[in-house]
Design a protein around this nucleic acid. Structure first.
Length: 281
DNA sequence: AATTATGTTGCGGT
DNA sequence: AACCGCAACATAAT
């Protein structure tokens, strides 16, 4: 589910509700989903929430952190008295029935507040880490697409070194982080570049356009609160809105907004890829 | 009813 | 080193 915009949406809301809360206790319902010593997390106060790549970092008062990766189907859902009592939403009854059968870990934050980590497919995780471990994890990822250090020169030089399809290259977190399958497809359409073009075949100008398009679709995704295709939810349980304005993802057979041709779906490197054979060259 | 699909990433092998 | 395929897992759709 989550790509950079979805994770950023989650982080921005968590920043509003978590700082100052103390973790009274945590319950691990699926061992695989939590890594660390549960005892070391208890009684710690949350000081801050931040994001890097698709990782969510919950900073604790002793300078350790909880790092969360949602992978394909993870959710972080927060509830407190306002959610459970008058602030509830009629279509979000499920929020009040947490923990659910997909809840893997949950945190009791006191005063009837709680944070639930739900994850249907159990690929995601919550790890308790010290600063050094966090930096080691961060080091696995190249800078974020929307980070200023990812310049056209940087991007072009990375592309020159690979013959893989450009679609695969922009999904490679060793090149840059943040794009996933939805936004990668949309960015290529916006830049009018065919997903199978070898990375090294892009001119500097094309690379520059594609990087700009990538930043644009991610920013739009953030502005719309992410894309809810299936599992992604805001921290409060609401859906995002980007799926209503996707350029190509999931629109097989429908007209390209740029040129009107019917969009096609093709499997590239094992991933469903949507594009327009009319204008993406 | 078996196969295929799903928003991520890491591993093992060529 | 680059690159490919598959694996982790649950569930819904064909």
């Amino acid at each position: 589910m989550p790509e950079l915009p979805e994770v950023e949406t989650v982080v921005r809301r968590l920043q509003q509700v978590l700082p100052g809360k103390t973790i009274n206790s945590l319950t691990v319902l699926k061992e695989k989903s939590f890594v660390g010593d549960q005892f070391l997390v208890m009684e710690k106060t949350i000081t801050e929430v931040s994001r890097r790549a698709k990782l969510i970092r919950i900073h604790l008062s002793d300078s350790t952190s909880l790092l969360v990766h949602l992978k394909m189907t993870g959710q972080l859902i927060y509830v407190d008295d306002q959610e459970r009592l008058g602030g509830g939403h009629p279509t979000l009854d499920w929020v009040q029935e947490l923990p659910s059968n997909h809840t893997r870990v949950w945190f009791d934050l006191g005063s009837h507040a709680a944070l639930y980590f739900n994850d249907q497919r159990i690929f995601g995780w919550v790890k308790h880490m010290d600063e050094e471990a966090v930096q080691r994890e961060y080091a696995k990822y190249a800078p974020d697409v929307i980070d200023d250090v990812v310049t056209p020169d940087y991007f072009f030089s990375k592309l020159q070194r690979t013959a893989r399809p450009i679609k695969v290259a922009i999904l490679d977190s060793k090149i840059m982080s943040g794009l996933g399958n939805i936004y990668a497809c949309d960015a290529l359409n916006l830049a009018s570049i065919h997903p199978l073009r070898p990375g090294k075949s892009l001119s500097f100008e094309e690379a520059e356009n594609l990087l700009d398009a990538s930043k644009q679709v991610l920013e739009k995704g953030i502005a719309l609160g992410g894309a809810t295709i299936e599992h992604f939810r805001h921290v409060d349980g609401f859906s995002g809105d980007y799926q209503k304005e996707v350029l190509v993802y999931g629109r097989e057979g429908e007209p390209c907004f740029n040129c009107g041709s019917a969009l096609v779906k093709e499997k590239i490197a094992g991933r469903g890829t949507y594009y327009c054979s009319g204008c993406q060259k």
